[in-house]
Amino acid sequence: MSNEEMATLGAKRLTMQLDLTAQQEEKLKTFYLDQMESRRKLMEKSKKERDEIRQDRMEMNEDQKEELRKILTEEQFTKWEQLQEKRRKGRKAPMRERQN
């Protein structure tokens, strides 16, 4: 359903329950549409912030990896990467499987 349809349905439902006037029903419909638009904007903002945080974290991880590469020998770094991969795979497994 579209936002318009949901707002209309919600307003009609309350109109029947509360015996609202046509004017009140229209105002309620507008109120619902405004609320939906506000929520949509908030969700978009949250998604953008999550994406930005994820990107920042990825960049930070790459920087940290480069620092580690300077500290460790090539063999040590390769082993560290293998340990990290094993750790990532362990996180994805359900808790039940990890304990076995």
Rank of each mutant, 00 (worst) to 15 (best):
E49M: 03
F77W: 07
M6Q: 06
E25R: 07
L14H: 06
E52V: 10
P94F: 02
F77P: 04
F77M: 07
T15D: 05
N100G: 10
E66S: 15
Q76L: 03
A93S: 07
E52Q: 15
R57S: 11
E59D: 15
T73H: 01
S46C: 09
K45D: 08
L83P: 08
K86S: 10
E4T: 09
E4Y: 08
L28F: 02
E67P: 04
Q76A: 11
D56E: 14
M6V: 03
E62W: 08
L72K: 01
M1K: 11
A93H: 07
L20V: 02
K27G: 04
W80H: 13
R96I: 12
E26K: 04
A7N: 02
E97R: 10
Q35N: 05
K47R: 12
Q55W: 07
D34Q: 15
Q82E: 15
I53H: 11
I71Q: 02
R98T: 01
Q24P: 00
T78K: 14
M43A: 09
D63S: 15
K27S: 12
Q17L: 14
Y32N: 02
M1G: 15
R91G: 14
D56Y: 06
I71N: 05
E26D: 11
K65L: 14
S38C: 10
F77K: 03
L28G: 00
I53T: 06
S2L: 05
N3V: 01
K86W: 12
Q23Y: 08
K41G: 04
D34F: 08
R40C: 07
E85K: 10
S38E: 10
K41F: 08
A93T: 06
T78W: 07
T8M: 13
K12M: 14
R39S: 03
A11R: 00
K65Q: 13
Q64H: 15
E74R: 06
T73A: 02
L42G: 05
E26W: 06
E26Q: 09
W80R: 09
R54Y: 05
M16A: 13
L72S: 04
M36D: 01
A93G: 02
T30P: 01
Y32F: 08
R54H: 10
R13C: 12
L20E: 00
M6R: 10
K12H: 11
R40E: 06
T8Y: 13
S46W: 02
M60Y: 15
A22R: 14
R50D: 05
L83H: 04
R88L: 06
T21I: 03
D51C: 08
R91C: 13
M58K: 12
L72Q: 01
Q35P: 01
R96Q: 12
L14T: 04
T21C: 03
R91V: 09
E5H: 04
Q35S: 03
A22S: 12
S2H: 04
E49F: 01
M60I: 11
N3W: 03
Q17W: 09
F31P: 01
A11P: 01
R87P: 03
R87H: 14
E26N: 09
R96T: 13
Q84H: 10
R50P: 00
R88T: 03
T73W: 01
Q64F: 15
S46V: 02
M36T: 01
K79E: 15
A11M: 01
Q64R: 15
A93Y: 03
T73G: 05
E85R: 12
R96K: 06
Q64D: 13
Q23S: 11
G10H: 02
